[in-house]
Amino acid sequence: MADAFDWGLLEPAGATGAVVSDDRILAAMVELERAHFTAWSSLLDVETTASLDVESLDREALLKESRRSGVPVVGLAQALREQGGTLVHQGMTSQDVLDSALMMVSRDALTVAREALTAAGRRFAALAREHRGTPFTVRTLTQEAEATTLGAVIGGWLDAVSSAIETVDSVVFPLQLGGAIGDGDAFARLSGRPDAVAILRRRISAILGLADPGRVWHTDRSPVLAVTRAAASVCSAGGRVGRDLGLLARDDVATPLHGGASSAMPHKKNPVDAVLLVANGLRVSGPLGVVQTASLSYDARPAGEWHAEWQAWRETLRLAAESASLLEHAAGDLVIQTRRAPVTPASAPRGSHEVDAAVARFERLQEGDAS
């Protein structure tokens, strides 16, 4: 492409968001078409050799057809039929391809986010243990409240990370396959098998590593809501920690080892990770709200609601991947200035139980990974 509409100028942490780029979504759509082609050919007992190559696709032509038809799949199906013949896309509808591709991208993006959250969690767990006895005065409603420890504060961050990981782990990424109006009739009619759609869902899901929902969810957007809410939980966890990191940097209690520069004040070392974490936490409510509103669907496919969902769905994933990466970097870059921590007399560290509980909860999640 001669010009990219968005190459990250206003998205400082945008490199991580490439996991949901147009190229990745296009590749996922081709993966879906390839898996359908393989499973469909097998069901029809037809020998095929086509590979369906994404690299040879004319992106300019795809954009032109997308504008004409209002959906990116029409031009893609036409181009892939030139590679693989009439069996390509047979029985499917555009929504099958785009929904399934976005589920594949969602799975990959949230996997990336979870890995970064886990790395951040390990660092916070270590810091919570290290500073379980470091006195610190916390605030409520902006005012000094009581003394606790920095370990207890960091344990709160760890709990936020664990909650986001649990939410991500609960998400299911289903295949979409229903045909023109969601009843699977084309597959049954073309194959002569009334159970064709069930067989295809099972086979295609296995190829792509998606869940077999055993149904069509064209107008039931609960799977999309689950994905985007999980993405938002990552952004919320990051934003919650980012708020604290920014305030602690202001008081020189916890500062980044490598701060950001100022164009006007060279002496400054700005807590950039903290700032961007808060920004992403604030931004995610917009696309999440669009997905929620668009879930009020109708007919066999609504005029506008589904289309409004695409970019909003993708944006929540982008923000989640970025936020988790920012949080991992912030945790690894954090320097605790214990000599400047507000000291309050205490006979024993407060908040020790909360530190232990937060660390134990996070470690249980990691044990689940190992098993």
Rank of each mutant, 00 (worst) to 15 (best):
R215N: 05
G209C: 07
D169G: 01
T111A: 07
H329W: 11
H267C: 10
G214Q: 05
R68W: 11
V234A: 04
A2I: 06
L296I: 14
V73N: 00
V278W: 10
T316L: 01
S41E: 04
L9N: 08
E31T: 03
S170N: 00
D244E: 15
R67D: 10
T38L: 11
G259M: 04
P345W: 14
G289N: 11
E115N: 06
V359N: 08
R193I: 14
V290K: 00
R361T: 06
D356V: 13
E55D: 14
S323C: 02
S41I: 04
M265Q: 10
E305D: 15
G70L: 12
G133L: 08
L326F: 11
A294K: 00
M104S: 02
L248G: 01
R339D: 07
S352V: 09
L190F: 07
L9I: 15
M265N: 13
L57D: 04
F5W: 15
G91V: 09
V97F: 11
L26T: 02
A211P: 14
A324N: 03
R132K: 11
V20M: 04
R107Q: 07
G286T: 12
P345K: 12
G70A: 01
A196E: 09
V171R: 00
Q366T: 07
A186G: 08
S56I: 13
V290T: 14
L63E: 05
A370N: 02
L32F: 15
R340H: 12
A2C: 00
A27L: 01
T111M: 05
I181A: 00
V291R: 01
V153Q: 11
R123L: 02
G155F: 12
G184N: 01
A312F: 15
I204P: 12
D220Y: 12
I199A: 05
M29T: 00
A77V: 13
R364D: 09
T134H: 08
A160N: 13
A160L: 13
W7C: 06
L26M: 05
Q90I: 06
T219R: 00
E367H: 06
V253A: 02
P271A: 03
T316C: 13
